[in-house]
Amino acid sequence: MADLQSVLRGARTRLSEAGVSSAALDARILVEHFSGTAREDAILRPSLELAGRIVQTIEQAVERRAGGEPVHRIIGEREFFGLPLKLSAETLEPRPDTETLVEAVLPFCRETAAREGECRILDLGTGTGAIALALLSQVPEAHAWGVDVAPGALETAAANAEALGLSGRFAPTLSDWWEKIEGCFHLIVTNPPYISGTEMEALVDEVRRFDPTRALYGGVDGLDAYRKIATGARRHLEKDGLVALEIGWQQGDAVSALFVAEGFEPAGRFRDFGNNERVLLFR
């Protein structure tokens, strides 16, 4: 057995020695998750004794982090738009920058639901279900179809929907982009693979080693997925519908040109928390 304070201190020290820049934060996340404690326990109950098996589990998790594995991969979940989402090997970690897309389309989603009595959402490349589930959590009249080519990702998204009480309005759909999609939607959203060949080589180890390549690599120029999305979106979009895409920070003009060539009109450009252009809207 060991007390909470010493376990926290040991975890911070080990991660600092391993060169982890966020050593203090990551140590706290790992210790709290595997011990079932909260932040205030470290202040109010530093001498709290932790069972030997818990200490061993924490030490194993700390070693994984010291070896470069992302902290949220280790605990198996990450929060997105206030929702706890389980991760799996076939899903990306949902990042805070993607919340920009949710914020950008929420007004349209709410207006559509108020006017039509529903809002049908197609989430292409749904992964954990992050974008679709965030929108469903905010708009009770909305229904979403989460599309992915990876069965494991769909299983994860379905499990997340079930855990959040949203499974009745979320339909996991196995399809390679438009291949098996039928009908029209008020809103099409996507965070597709958009990393170019050159950028793949420069990715940090935590992303390159632990995020699924299929969800990252967008072809030599990073635009392959956008070409496929642009060519199919019109026949699956309701009149006055909206398409929203996450993009790489330098891809705005190139992606916009692809959609304008398919007859779309630009409807908005949004920047993320780092002030990088991150989301494009089209009608």
Rank of each mutant, 00 (worst) to 15 (best):
A89R: 14
H33V: 09
E93H: 03
V55T: 04
E90C: 06
P46L: 11
R14P: 00
A23V: 04
E49A: 15
G68D: 08
R73N: 10
V20A: 05
V7P: 00
R53G: 08
V20I: 15
L48N: 01
R45M: 12
I58K: 00
A18M: 09
L83K: 05
R14Y: 03
L15R: 01
I54T: 15
F80I: 07
G52P: 04
D41E: 14
L25F: 15
E77S: 14
E49I: 12
V7T: 02
L25G: 05
I58L: 14
A61W: 02
A27G: 05
A24Q: 11
R95M: 09
A89G: 08
L15A: 05
V20K: 01
A61V: 08
L44N: 05
L44S: 06
E69T: 07
E79P: 04
L48T: 03
L44Q: 08
R95C: 08
E59H: 06
R14I: 05
R9E: 11
L48C: 06
S35N: 04
G76V: 12
E77A: 13
V20S: 03
G82Y: 06
D41L: 09
G52R: 10
T57S: 12
A18E: 05
A11I: 02
P46W: 10
S47R: 14
L83D: 07
L25D: 09
F81Q: 04
Q56H: 11
L44T: 07
E40V: 06
R12T: 07
R12G: 02
I75T: 14
A42G: 03
P96V: 10
S88K: 02
E32A: 11
S6V: 13
R39S: 15
V20L: 09
R65W: 09
R53E: 15
H33G: 05
Q60P: 01
R65S: 06
S47A: 15
V7D: 00
G19M: 08
E69Q: 15
S6Q: 14
E93W: 02
V7N: 00
T37Q: 06
R64K: 15
G68P: 04
R28V: 03
L15P: 00
R28G: 02
E93P: 00
T57N: 10
A89H: 11
G52W: 05
L8R: 00
A51F: 09
T13E: 14
S22L: 13
E69W: 07
S22K: 08
A61H: 03
T57M: 12
L85P: 01
S88Y: 05
E59M: 09
T57L: 13
V55H: 01
